[in-house]
Design a protein around this nucleic acid. Structure first.
Length: 231
RNA sequence: UCUUCAAAGAGGAC
């Protein structure tokens, strides 16, 4: 069953959705006992497809088979609903897991924070940040990067920079995601000197400048009409 | 390390 899960996970990561659906059915038909991993892989896949009904159906099946959902199961469902803007659903699942005695982890809170930010509910995102801290969890680089990205997109650069400094203060190292949000915001606002400065800072910090970061910068340069510099 | 969270552009629709 474990090697089947490995294969199933590989199929979904490759984007072969049809393949994983079929494989899942075959597993069930072949009498291979699905585990919580098997269900988590399929549920996450359906969530990413936006098929929340399908995901909820599998979640219901788990109960029938006496497979106990774990924090990963709940995190996938919370993220899936949240990305579709079904924020109330996300909160329901969050409450459910707590009632059942499954403790939310950093990923749970990060997913909630991200979705609320993306749908313009920053105040609620902050409430989750507080709940997270209250329950003894420490915000990580993803948590900070998520807020930084949200502030950047809202044009609240002073707040973004504050978080950027805060994270370093608590010993977290900004990564390519963190920098890309900042580069993108400056690039889109036409502050190219600042964007280039950040890129330099990145390479000095030993962070690889990948395609995403690079296109964020190039987009700004092209729109400035500075094709030569872009090259 | 069998599964879950954050970044840019492009395309299609409106």
């Amino acid at each position: 069953a474990r090697s089947c899960n490995l294969l199933l996970g590989r199929l979904t990561k490759m984007g072969n959705g049809e393949g994983s659906r079929k494989f899942f059915k075959e597993m069930m038909g072949a009498g291979i006992k699905p585990s919580v991993f098997t269900y988590n892989i399929m549920i996450d896949y359906l969530c990413k497809e936006g098929d929340m009904e399908g995901a909820q159906r599998l979640y219901a099946d788990m109960k029938v088979l006496n497979i106990t959902p774990d924090v990963v199961t709940y995190n996938s469902l919370i993220d899936g609903h949240g990305k579709l803007g079904q924020l109330d659903e996300s909160i329901c699942i969050y409450n459910d897991m707590i009632n059942i005695g499954c403790f939310p982890d950093v990923i749970t809170y990060n997913a909630l924070i991200n979705c609320f930010c993306k749908f313009g509910k920053m105040p609620q995102a902050f409430e989750f940040l507080h709940s997270m801290k209250k329950s003894g969890l420490k915000p990580n680089v993803v948590t900070y990067s998520t807020f930084i990205d949200a502030f950047c997109k809202e044009g609240m650069m002073q707040e973004a920079i504050k978080f950027f400094m805060d994270m370093r203060r608590v010993g977290l190292i900004p990564n390519e995601f963190t920098y890309t949000s900042l580069v993108d915001a400056n690039s889109k606002a036409g502050r190219m000197e600042e964007a280039v400065k950040l890129i330099k800072e990145m390479s000095e910090a030993g962070i690889t400048i990948n395609t995403v970061t690079c296109t964020a910068l190039l987009d700004g340069l092209c729109k400035e009409g500075k094709m030569k510099e872009a090259e």
